Amino acid sequence: MNRITRFLTRPAAMLAMSFGLLLGLSGCAGTSRVGVTNDFDHSVNFRAYKTWSWYPQQPTDTEGGPAQGYQSFLDKRIRTAVEREMASKGLTFSEKAPDLYVAYSAKVEDKQQANYGGYGPFGYPYYGYGYGGLYNRNYITNYKAGTVIIDFVDARRKELAWRGLGQAQVDQQTISEPEVYRIVNSILGTYPPQDTNARR
Rank of each mutant, 00 (worst) to 15 (best):
M1I: 02
N2F: 02
F7V: 08
T9Y: 02
A13E: 02
M14H: 03
L15M: 01
A16L: 07
L21E: 03
L23E: 01
L25T: 13
C28P: 05
T31P: 08
G35L: 02
V36D: 12
S43M: 00
N45H: 09
K50F: 01
T51V: 04
P56C: 04
P59T: 04
T62S: 06
G64T: 10
Q68A: 10
Q71V: 06
L74Q: 15
K76Q: 15
R77V: 14
E83Y: 01
M86V: 01
A87D: 07
A87L: 10
S88A: 07
K89S: 00
K96W: 04
V102T: 02
V102F: 01
Y104D: 00
S105T: 07
S105A: 13
A106V: 12
G117A: 10
G117I: 05
G118S: 06
Y119S: 04
Y119W: 03
P121C: 04
P121R: 14
G128C: 05
Y131T: 10
Y131S: 05
Y131E: 11
Y135A: 03
Y135V: 13
R137E: 09
I140S: 08
Y143A: 13
V148Q: 12
I150R: 11
F152R: 03
D154L: 07
R156G: 14
K158S: 10
K158L: 03
E159V: 02
Q167S: 15
Q169C: 07
V170P: 14
V170K: 11
Q172F: 09
Q172L: 12
T174Q: 15
S176E: 09
Y181L: 14
Y181S: 05
R182D: 15
I187A: 00
Y191M: 01
P193Q: 00
T196Y: 05
A198Q: 03
A198V: 08
